[in-house]
């Protein structure tokens, strides 16, 4: 079988000194790697993950306008590289770190690449492995993910594709945000920056599914991220993302594909469906003593209306309701309570 230049990297030593070892196949849920190929790489005994851009993969997907598609791919790759550089230089602790980047010639073709710190797993894979719901693990994941978002938002970057497979688990067990291919900063000129859904549709916030684009960049983007953070929590509790639960609780005529009215008009129906989503989560939490607090966070983050979503205290104070600081603190407090209880149980 004819290999593309990006598929021939095994054994190559990159200009930055990393040696490419073996090919890592795409995992489920990794739509971010749609046009790239992953490898393990080593340098001075350190392990890393190398992502190489594969133009031919794009062609195989049948792009209607190949030249524009290549241009978009290159620009997206460069954009992701720049965002990651910015995060690395800003020392964002809960964002996956890029160690190096560059381009290498293979058979006369340039193959751009980025080297990342190696992740052991991701939340999606771990959730599938777990039998039942592990509240301590879920809360700590939420704590780390909310720190990641807080760090990104403080640099006016919105992730836009926060889903379980994009929450990576690194060597020390900490969770970090990965896959910035569809992230958006205020000055981003790429086409996805202007679409209602930049990332994976299956995990999108409801306003995106209905094609609503709020004129205010911060409301549009940070509101979307807030929903996805809440959806991540719903996924870890119920095994299904919030948007899927929400839509499956709607009558067919109110679902995004059928609805021809405005987003504002569909909100009461979404809110009624959302009541069922919250009750579903409630059912999974049974008599947990943190139940009310957890449900309250989910109600705030996954609220269908952008103008009710987020932290009510910040909203009352006319501050950014999608601000993550208070969520970071709440998740940390709850994680600590549950972890301490677990520790006490084990010690006793």
């Amino acid at each position: 079988m004819n290999q593309t230049p990006a598929q021939k990297l095994e054994g190559y030593v990159m200009p930055c000194g990393w040696t490419v070892k073996s090919y890592i196949p795409n995992g489920a849920g990794h739509t971010g790697s749609a046009f790239s190929i992953g490898y393990s790489a080593v340098k001075d005994g350190d392990k890393a993950f190398l992502k190489a851009l594969d133009f031919k993969k794009l062609m195989a997907m049948g792009a209607p306008d190949p030249l524009s598609a290549i241009r978009y791919m290159t620009e997206s790759f460069e954009y992701e590289r720049d965002i990651l550089r910015q995060c690395r230089d800003g020392k964002l602790s809960r964002v996956i770190r890029s160690l190096s980047d560059g381009s290498i010639d293979v058979d006369g073709f340039p193959v751009p690449y980025i080297v990342f710190e190696m992740a052991e797993s991701d939340v999606r894979k771990e959730s599938i492995k777990q039998v039942g719901f592990n509240l301590a693990w879920a809360l700590r994941t939420m704590h780390h993910a909310s720190i990641g978002l807080m760090q990104l938002h403080s640099r006016e970057i919105s992730h836009q594709d926060l889903k379980p497979s994009n929450i990576l688990i690194v060597e020390d067990g900490g969770r970090k945000l990965g896959d910035f291919g569809t992230s958006v900063s205020k000055d981003c000129k790429l086409p996805h920056a202007n679409t209602p859904i930049a990332g994976d549709r299956s995990y999108a916030a409801p306003e995106g599914l209905y094609g609503y684009v709020d004129p205010d960049w911060s409301i549009r983007r940070f509101g979307f991220d807030a929903f996805q953070l809440g959806s991540l929590f719903v996924f870890m509790i119920t095994g299904v993302p919030a948007s899927t639960l929400l839509i499956s609780n709607l009558h067919g005529s109110h679902q995004p594909e059928s609805w021809s009215g405005t987003y504002k008009e569909v909100i009461p129906y979404l809110q009624e469906a959302f009541v069922n989503v919250v009750e579903t989560v409630d059912g999974h939490l049974m008599n947990n003593k943190l139940k009310e607090q957890i449900l309250s966070i989910i109600k705030e983050l996954c609220e269908p209306s952008l103008f009710l979503r987020g932290d009510p205290v910040l909203r009352r104070k006319k501050m950014n309701p999608y601000g993550m600081e208070r969520y970071v603190s709440r998740f940390n407090r709850f994680s600590t309570i549950v972890e301490r209880e677990l520790y006490n149980m084990v010690v006793k």
């Binding site: 849920g29 894979k125 299956s202 993302p241 899927t244 594909e257």
Partner: peptide, 23 residues
């Protein structure tokens, strides 16, 4: 991914996609 490997994760992803799109 499904055609290459029929696993639970990909089955779930396609279901989530189908629900959110109504297809």
């Amino acid at each position: 991914l499904w055609n290459k490997n029929k696993c639970m994760e990909t089955a779930q992803d396609i279901i989530y996609y189908a629900v959110t799109t109504g297809c």
